[in-house]
Deep mutational scan, measured.
Amino acid sequence: KKSYVLIKVKNPKTKETHTIVVPEENLEEVLKALASQPNVKVVDIERFP
């Protein structure tokens, strides 16, 4: 059974918020990819039960 993680990201320029759902096993690479985006800020990470 896969567990999923909900990542909320915000664009500081446009103030838009997006929610991305990723499998927990991919969380680290997704966070690394997001960290390299200049106008993306991770605001929240939630685990799915």
Rank of each mutant, 00 (worst) to 15 (best):
L6E: 14
K8E: 05
E29I: 07
N26Q: 13
T17P: 02
L6F: 10
N26Y: 15
V22H: 01
E29Y: 08
A35E: 10
E28V: 08
K32V: 06
L27D: 00
A35S: 09
T17I: 12
Y4L: 14
K1G: 11
E28N: 11
S3R: 11
R47Q: 05
E24L: 10
K32I: 08
L27E: 02
P38W: 02
V5Q: 01
P23Q: 10
P12W: 15
A33N: 08
Q37C: 14
I7V: 07
K1C: 12
V21P: 02
E29Q: 10
D44Y: 14
T19Y: 13
N11T: 04
K32Q: 09
L34I: 08
L27A: 04
K41I: 15
V42P: 01
V40I: 10
E24Q: 06
K1D: 11
V43E: 04
L27H: 02
F48W: 14
V40A: 07
V22T: 04
H18L: 11
K13A: 09
Y4N: 04
I7H: 00
Q37F: 12
H18W: 14
I7E: 00
L6P: 03
H18P: 00
K8Y: 15
N39T: 05
S3M: 13
D44E: 12
T17Q: 09
V42E: 02
E28K: 08
L27S: 02
T19G: 04
L34S: 00
S36P: 02
N26M: 14
V40M: 13
N26W: 14
E24P: 04
N11D: 08
P49L: 07
A35R: 11
K13W: 12
Y4D: 04
P23H: 09
T14Q: 03
K13G: 06
I7R: 00
E24W: 10
N26V: 09
L27P: 00
V22F: 02
I20Q: 02
T14F: 04
E16P: 01
K41W: 05
I7D: 00
K41H: 13
Y4P: 10
K32Y: 05
A35Q: 11
V42F: 03
N39Y: 05
E28S: 06
Q37T: 09
R47S: 07
A33I: 13
T19D: 04
E16G: 07
I20N: 00
R47A: 07
K1S: 10
L34Q: 00
K41N: 06
E16Y: 07
L34T: 01
K32A: 11
L34N: 00
I45G: 01
V30C: 07
K10E: 15
V30H: 02
R47Y: 14
V9P: 00
V43S: 03
V5T: 02
A33E: 08
F48I: 13
V42H: 01
K41M: 14
S36I: 07
P49A: 06
K15G: 15
V30M: 10
Y4E: 04
K10W: 15
E46H: 13
V22L: 03
K32C: 08
A35F: 09
I45F: 05
K10M: 15
A33Q: 10
T14G: 03
K15C: 12
E29V: 08
L31I: 04
E16R: 12
S36R: 12
K41R: 10
V22N: 00
V42K: 01
F48N: 06
S3F: 14
Y4A: 03
P12T: 14
V9Y: 11
K8D: 02
K8P: 00
S36L: 12
V9E: 00
V30N: 01
D44A: 14
A33P: 00
I20L: 10
V40F: 12
V42I: 12
E16W: 08
K32L: 10
L34P: 00
Q37S: 11
V21T: 05
I45S: 01
K1L: 10
T17F: 11
Q37I: 10
H18G: 04
L6R: 14
K1P: 09
V30Q: 03
A35I: 07
E29K: 08
N26F: 14
A35L: 14
L27I: 04
V21M: 14
P12Y: 15
K13C: 09
V30D: 00
K1V: 07
K13S: 09
K10V: 15
